[in-house]
Design a protein around this nucleic acid. Structure first.
Lengths: 121, 121
DNA sequence: CAGGATCCCTGTGGATACTG
DNA sequence: CAGTATCCACAGGGATCCTG
């Protein structure tokens, strides 16, 4: 894992570790719908991601038991990724962050306007 | 800011942006107590942080209106950092993450034990 | 005391090509 | 289809020295 010595006190980073990564929030947001997705299906839903990063993030999430990887022995290969029951516990947190983020954008925008007003007066 | 083109959809990253950074969670955790802290006081409470990183993180948090920087015109200089009312809205999220993180450690530990059992059997 | 200025190292992530 | 394997760029962060 990434955190060698978390000197007690801050398990927050443990949670962060699970959702930090350039595309992890998007992946989680998609899989939290409950529907399983195939590899390339995910790629298509995340336009700018590279297969490398998709693979890496999926592996990390799997290792954390947040998503499940189901391999179907057939040709052509078929692999499906889905959120685990345990992974669903991240849902509320992600939602809260999404909400806070949206509100934050508004908050910062209004502060911008304040400064604009004081400039224009 | 860090995210140039967040293609709508994911304000989660906006929230993440506010709390991601090697020491931000700790800083926030400390300041969320409500008590104002001086610069070196914070340093002392975060053993391994460098003044450079402390400064940078504080500046970013200030820019986001999450903490307040109060400069007292006196010599020797005195600067106090405190959580803003707005910044307090991050509290519940950090708390939730902390709780999830603690639980996650337990969860992963128990999975480890499972494998240990299957190995030892 | 509370920083600013520099230099440098590492990890995260991007681009591209190849495979079972 | 679902990946691996390489190479490479850059930003986040560390160490050190200096200052109003």
């Amino acid at each position: 894992m990434k955190n060698d010595k978390n000197p007690m006190q801050c398990q927050t980073v443990v949670a962060l570790d699970a959702i930090v990564g350039k595309w992890k929030p998007v992946i989680l947001h998609i899989l939290l719908s409950g529907k399983p997705y195939r590899f390339n299906e995910l790629r298509r839903n995340i336009p700018d991601i590279t297969q490398r990063m998709l693979t890496m993030h999926l592996r990390e999430l799997e290792e954390q038991d947040i998503i499940h990887r189901e391999v179907y022995a057939q040709v052509p290969p078929k692999v499906e990724y889905s959120i685990t029951e345990y992974g669903k516990t991240l849902g509320p947190i992600l939602e809260a962050m999404h909400e806070w983020g949206a509100n934050h954008l508004a908050h910062m925008a209004s502060k911008e306007t304040e400064t604009d007003n004081s400039r224009s007066s």
